[in-house]
């Protein structure tokens, strides 16, 4: 267990492999507001890293820096051999990092299979290439496979996304990220506004994603549910990581205490 408040701890020593994605000594400010201060964090293949913190703690800023939507002021981002002060969304995607945004970024009028392949379309070979004629049959088959890989079953992949439930949409967004991710999937509030059954579906999906040997980073306010699935936990407060370690060392009460600054607060393990 580590609780190096005020300083960003390095990745846990017992790391099973090289980090899929790491940020090192990252700082970010918006005007006079210091959003992140010396944040270092690593995500490992096959593991779920849950990121907790109160509103304004810097979780979303950190996620946006990890997926290329924001550039840090100082610090480094490492993805495999790539090491640079920042990423663009396109570069992050080309390095195998996919993000599931809180708003899901799905086109509601498009079918599930079309959303899955938007920007990565498959074309029919018997038509001239410049026409870009879609191979919907192959896209449908691969969409079903991508959904099954993370244990998701939908009535059909030919329905518009707007006809799906909130949980099913979330599952499609995650399945799409997993389909195109080669290193890491970042998820921002994946269970927000979902019911219990739908949240369970998302948690199962997160587990399946990690089983596919991808690193998963999850930002969520749903602490109990995320503790069920997390391997690593990091807690943020005022733009710093105040605790980072194995999920087994954290309880709900301890995390809440760290979030609000009452670090001495502890709780029995069975609270989880």
């Amino acid at each position: 267990m580590r609780s190096d408040a005020g300083r960003s701890p390095a990745a846990p020593q017992a790391s099973p492999a090289e980090a899929a994605l790491a940020v090192v000594d990252v700082c970010k400010s918006f005007g006079h507001v210091q959003a992140l201060t010396d944040v270092s964090l690593s995500a490992y293949p096959g593991q779920v890293l849950a990121l907790f913190g109160d509103n304004g703690a810097g979780k979303s800023t950190l996620m946006k820096i990890m997926c290329g939507a924001l550039q840090p002021d100082t610090g480094t981002i490492r993805v495999g051999d790539y090491e640079a002060p920042g990423l663009s969304i396109q570069r992050a995607q080309s390095l195998g990092i996919q993000a599931v945004y809180q708003d899901l970024s799905l086109a509601p009028h498009l079918m599930v299979l079309e959303n899955m392949f938007l920007g990565h379309e498959l074309y029919r070979s018997r038509w001239p290439g410049f026409l870009h004629v879609l191979d919907r049959r192959r896209m449908a088959m691969e969409t079903v496979e991508a959904l099954e890989r993370i244990s998701i079953r939908l009535p059909s992949v030919h329905v518009p996304v707007m006809k799906l439930s909130g949980g099913q949409r979330q599952a499609v967004a995650v399945a799409r990220a997993v389909r195109w991710a080669r290193r890491a999937v970042l998820m921002d509030e994946p269970t927000a506004a979902l019911g219990r059954v739908q949240s369970d579906l998302v948690v199962d999906t997160i587990r399946a994603t990690a089983r596919a040997n991808l690193a998963v980073v999850v930002v969520s306010h749903d602490i109990p549910r995320m503790l069920e699935v997390a391997d690593q936990v990091a807690v943020m407060r005022h733009g710093r990581i105040v605790a980072h370690g194995s999920a087994a060392d954290f309880t709900l009460a301890r995390i809440v205490g760290l979030m609000v600054g009452e670090e001495s607060r502890t709780a029995p393990r069975d609270e989880r």
Binding site: Y101, S105, P108, L110, L118, G119, L134
Partner: peptide
């Protein structure tokens, strides 16, 4: 398909790299 995607949810098209 991309035309419909950007009419349906412009941000989804941007984030898909279009």
């Amino acid at each position: 398909m991309r035309t419909l995607a950007m009419g349906s949810e412009p941000e989804a098209a941007v984030r898909a790299g279009i």
